[in-house]
């Protein structure tokens, strides 16, 4: 039964491609859905609106993307399956959510990057290709890569700067590797729902929580935490397309979308840099103190973490780590 299904699918893909070849010099009429979970107050929201506008303009209105923002259709954790199974044509998610199926996609949650420059260089020196190949195996094609600022630990009472500071602290983390990192550094990783975090920090149910500076700003962390320390690991958001849908488009159509994607990516990077600086200034104004962390103090934990990553992520993971080392 399953075999029948997949055969049916591939046949239908072939036929659309064949149709596309008949008129391959013109942009096709395309309607598609784009889902993401960002609310209007975050710059990525604006970025994806721009993407839809650009695509429409460049195609004289032939390509129309309907955007479903703020998790209206899928939340971050469900979106990967939705894209890879073709329930939605396009979607933007945090890169590490793909780790459900491809362990190598957790690479950005490792605290092994010197700074944003280093991370960008590594991405552009081959990581994009490795990741794209991996995602292709589950019918996904990444189109827009948005770097996010590094994550930090926001903490009450005292900043977390050395492994000693982690001891006996309850720290809210969001992913397996970050939790492992906290544990290896002597802390207790805790997972609680995002909506519970403000109260948990305020009442001391947890002592610290991980997020980016824009996250601290929008969740009003400055109201109940005094410090943030880092940087630990960079964030990465991928806007990806389902490959079956992508392959059903002819070349001119794909080119229009790729062109718009490139412009959107530039816009997102630019806005990101601006927003991050603004957020840091804002947090300082609100009295949240920033403490820089020297990651060398954590080398033992980081090595163990790398090892665990490599054992899950296999060959692709090894390639990624090599690229990171070379771009240092």
């Amino acid at each position: 039964n399953d075999e029948d299904n997949s055969k049916g699918e591939s046949e239908s893909t072939v036929s659309t491609v064949a149709k596309a070849e008949d008129a391959n010099d013109e942009v096709q009429e395309v309607k598609a859905k784009l889902a993401h979970f960002y609310s209007p107050d975050i710059f990525t929201y604006e970025g994806y609106e721009l993407f839809a506008d650009l695509v429409s303009k460049k195609s004289d209105g032939k390509i129309q993307f309907t955007i479903f923002p703020a998790g209206q259709l899928y939340n971050d954790a469900n979106l990967p399956t939705a894209i890879s199974s073709g329930q939605v044509e396009l979607g933007a998610t945090v890169a590490e959510t793909w780790a459900s199926n491809i362990a190598a996609l957790e690479f950005n949650t490792l605290p092994i990057y010197k700074d944003t420059e280093h991370f960008r260089k590594a991405l552009n020196s081959g990581i994009r290709e490795v990741v794209s190949d991996q995602l292709a195996t589950i019918n996904v094609k990444p189109l827009i890569w948005t770097y996010f600022d590094f994550s930090y630990f926001a903490s009450i009472k005292s900043p977390l700067v050395s492994p000693g500071d982690f001891v006996d602290k309850k720290i809210r983390t969001t992913g397996p590797l970050m939790a492992k990192f906290v544990e290896l550094s002597g802390g207790t990783p805790v997972s609680i729902p995002a909506v519970d975090v403000p109260q948990a920090l305020q009442r001391g149910t947890v002592d610290a929580s991980v997020s980016g500076v824009t996250g601290f700003q929008s969740w009003k962390y400055y109201d109940y935490t005094d410090y943030y320390s880092g940087p630990f690991n960079p964030g990465l958001v991928l806007l990806s397309a389902n490959t079956k849908w992508w392959n059903s488009l002819n070349e001119p159509t794909q080119n229009v979308i790729l062109e718009a994607a490139k412009e959107t990516e530039d816009f997102l990077i630019e806005s990101h840099d601006k927003v991050t600086v603004e957020a840091k200034t804002f947090l300082a104004e609100q009295g949240m103190k920033y403490e820089e962390v020297n990651l060398e103090q954590f080398s033992e934990a980081i090595d163990a973490l790398k090892e665990q990553y490599l054992s899950n992520a296999g060959e692709a993971g090894k390639q990624i780590i090599d690229i990171v080392e070379k771009s240092r």
């Binding site: 699918e9 073709g86 729902p193």
Partner: peptide
């Protein structure tokens, strides 16, 4: 709106995800 194939993937996932919440 989505055709039978996508619908048959969507229905179980939406219902499952509806309950997959720590709240």
């Amino acid at each position: 709106h989505m055709g039978g194939e996508v619908t048959s993937i969507q229905i179980p996932q939406v219902i499952y995800n509806a309950l997959n919440s720590s709240l």
